[in-house]
Computed example of a mutant assay.
Amino acid sequence: MNHYRGRFAPTPSGPLHFGSLVAALASFLDARRVGGQWRLRIEDIDPPRCPPGAAETILRQLEAFGLEWDGSTHWQHERGAAYQAALDTLVDRGLAYPCSCSRKQWRDHPIYPGWCREGLREPGKPAAWRLRSDLGLRPVVWHDRLFGEQHVDPATLGDVILRRKDDLWAYQLAVVVDDADQGITDVVRGFDLLDNTPWQRQLQHGLGLPEPRYLHLPLIMGGDGQKLSKQNLAPPLPLDDDAVRPLLHRALVALDQRPPAELATAPVAEQLARAITAWDVGRIHPRPGRSATAASH
Rank of each mutant, 00 (worst) to 15 (best):
E211N: 10
A251V: 01
P259G: 06
L219M: 15
W106C: 03
R49Y: 07
H109W: 13
A254P: 02
T156P: 00
P236Y: 11
C101M: 06
D44S: 06
A155C: 05
R39L: 15
G80N: 14
R164C: 03
E211Y: 04
A155K: 10
A275P: 08
D242W: 06
G36C: 05
D144N: 07
L157G: 02
R103A: 09
L135W: 12
L194Y: 12
Y4A: 10
G183R: 10
I276T: 14
D280A: 12
G222C: 05
G14Y: 10
G119I: 00
P47Q: 10
E211R: 11
S27E: 07
I220Q: 13
Q76A: 08
T57P: 00
L62C: 04
P246F: 08
D159A: 03
P10T: 07
V268F: 11
L233T: 06
P52Y: 10
A269C: 01
A81W: 15
A64C: 03
P154I: 01
P259Y: 13
G208S: 09
P238Q: 08
Q182V: 01
I276G: 08
H297M: 00
Y112M: 06
E262D: 13
D46R: 05
L157S: 03
P47S: 08
T11L: 08
R39M: 11
I276F: 12
H77G: 03
H205R: 06
F191D: 00
P52D: 10
E149F: 00
L239F: 08
W106M: 03
Y97K: 07
L168V: 01
G19R: 04
L248S: 04
G148W: 09
C99Q: 14
Q172F: 06
I111V: 15
P259I: 04
L219I: 05
E43N: 07
L207Y: 14
A278D: 15
H74F: 14
E56P: 02
P47M: 09
L237P: 00
H151M: 02
R130G: 02
G6E: 12
L146G: 07
A23Y: 05
H109R: 13
R145V: 00
R49K: 11
R274C: 01
A155L: 07
A55T: 02
S13R: 05
R60C: 09
P267E: 13
V281H: 09
A234Y: 10
A170M: 14
L90K: 12
L137I: 02
L25G: 01
L25W: 08
L95I: 02
H143F: 09
L59V: 02
W69I: 01
A24R: 02
P48R: 10
D88F: 11
